[in-house]
C-alpha cells in the first residue's frame, strides 16, 4: 500500500478573536478589558487522507474552515492540536500572485516567487522560458507587475506554481479569473501533474468545476467534516443542503 501524500489526523485550530480592532500597547495596558476576546473554533477534529495522484475537492460554506485547513497544510498556522504529515513539497497557488511586488518586473517576481516555493535561483533561471511560455505573458515579462491585468497576474502566479516540482498543489478558487482558454490549459496541466503522482487539494464554489476535476470531495461544515466520499454523492448532498 502506498503512503498518503497528505495525512491529517484529528486537526483542531482555535483562533482568539478581539472585537476592538488593532493590537497595541493599549491592549496590553488595558488588560482588564480582555473580556472582549472570544475563542473561535475554526477546525474541529478534522481527519483526511489524500493519496498520490488524487484530486480532492474541499467544499462548504464561507466560514466553514476551508481556508484555515489549506493554510495549515501550507504551514502558515500551527494547529492547536492534532497532527499532519505531508510527503514532499507543498505549493500553494498564491491567489493573484500574493508574493508579487508591484514595482518589480515579471522576471524579477518569478525569481522571487520560485525561490519562495522552494526552488534555487539556478533552477528558476533554467525554467524561466517554460514559465514565461506557459503564462502567455510574452514580452510584457520585462514590465513592472503593477501594469499587469489581474488575469496576467493569475497566469504568471499559476505558471510559477506548476513549475516547482511540488508533490502537493493547493488550489484556492483562483482559476476563475483566467479566461476559458487558460482554464482549459490549467486543467490539462493539473491532469498531467496528477498522472505523474502529484496530489491536489482543490477549493471551489463552482460545483461544475468540482465535479469535473475532483475524484473525491470533503464537505466541511462549521469546522468539522460533514461528509467524505465520491464527488457526485458529496456534491449532491451539499447542493441539497444549500437549497434548503
Amino acid at each position: 500500500m502506498t503512503e498518503p501524500a497528505i495525512q491529517v489526523r484529528g486537526l483542531c485550530k482555535e483562533f482568539r478573536l478581539v472585537h476592538t480592532g488593532y493590537a497595541s500597547f493599549k491592549g496590553a495596558l488595558l488588560w482588564w478589558k480582555k473580556r472582549n476576546t472570544e475563542t473561535l473554533k475554526a477546525l474541529n477534529d478534522v481527519s483526511l487522507d489524500v493519496m498520490p495522484g488524487e484530486c480532492v475537492a474541499v467544499i462548504g460554506r464561507n466560514g466553514a474552515g476551508i481556508s484555515t485547513l489549506l493554510s495549515i497544510l501550507a504551514r502558515v498556522y500551527k494547529p492547536t492540536s492534532g497532527g499532519l504529515k505531508i510527503s514532499g513539497r507543498v505549493a500553494p497557488l498564491l491567489e493573484l500572485g500574493a508574493g508579487f511586488h508591484p514595482d518589480l518586473t515579471g522576471i524579477e517576481n518569478v525569481f522571487f516567487n520560485g525561490v519562495i516555493l522552494g526552488l534555487t535561483r539556478k533552477q528558476v533561471s533554467e525554467r524561466m522560458e517554460s514559465i514565461i511560455n506557459f503564462s502567455e505573458i510574452g514580452h510584457y515579462i520585462d514590465a513592472p507587475v503593477r501594469t499587469y491585468s489581474s488575469g496576467m497576474l493569475l497566469r504568471l502566479g499559476f505558471s510559477v506554481a506548476v513549475h516547482v516540482d511540488a508533490s502537493v498543489l493547493l488550489v484556492d478558487e483562483a482559476l476563475a479569473v483566467g479566461d476559458l482558454e487558460f482554464q482549459r490549459k490549467c486543467m490539462e496541466r493539473i491532469r498531467g501533474f496528477q498522472s505523474e503522482g502529484g496530489s491536489i487539494l482543490f477549493v471551489s464554489h463552482d460545483m461544475a468545476a468540482v465535479r469535473s476535476a475532483a475524484s473525491r470531495a470533503i464537505w466541511l461544515k462549521d469546522g468539522a467534516v460533514q461528509m467524505v466520499g465520491e464527488t457526485d454523492q458529496v456534491v449532491s448532498a451539499y447542493e441539497k443542503f444549500s437549497a434548503q
Binding site: 493554510s71 501550507a74 504551514r75 502558515v76 500553494p92 498564491l94 491567489e95 500574493a98 508574493g99 519562495i116 516555493l117
Partner: peptide
Amino acid sequence: ISLLKKIYF
C-alpha cells in the same frame, strides 16, 4: 503580513 498568511518560510 499578507504574504505570511499565504505561505510558509
